[in-house]
Amino acid sequence: MLEDEQKTIKKAQDGEVEAFGLLYEHYLPKIYRFVLIKVSQREEAEDLTHQAFLKAWENIEQYNPKGYSFGSWLYRIARNTVIDHYRGERPQVSLDDVSIDIKAGGAPLTEEINAKIELERLIELMGKLKSLEQEVLVMRFVDDLSPKEVAKAIDKSEGAVKLIQHRALKSLKEILENE
């Protein structure tokens, strides 16, 4: 969570552009990752992430801190943006389509390439999971959201989130073993 997040959100709700800028910088990588793993195409992920933040900025007055975290609210917007974009159809994922940028933190080029290939492969395999399972895995393990926050973002109960998480891990394990 961003330092003094509630104050920053309040300022952004009062129309302070720079305050929303701080929120954007903090949440952009998370939301971008979330969208990219769902759509598997960099350009599309960039467009949809941009749309999601635009919606968030236009409707920030509607965010109520008492309801759920700002992160959950943003994930919810991003999720709905992707759903609206595909109108119920799941994006078709193939290894050729997956093109991602990674920042391996100064690792040698070969390691970086290997990491990239491995991640692209993992995204492709995760694409075989159900949409909701994919979302839960990303929010829980990539972005460290609590089950409660995930529940708010996907509009399910905490119990349902834990169940989906369990099924998702089991399915992914099977996919990897059968690869």
């Binding site: 800028g21 952009l28 940028d101 990674i102 990539v142």
Partner: peptide
């Protein structure tokens, strides 16, 4: 292995241009 996906980040240029576009909206 799933946590390794944290390495995925948007490019700096995209982040900069996107920020400008949203805040100028």
């Amino acid at each position: 292995k799933i946590k390794e996906l944290r390495l995925i980040k948007p490019s700096d240029e995209y982040a900069r241009i996107g920020r400008l576009a949203i805040l100028s909206h």
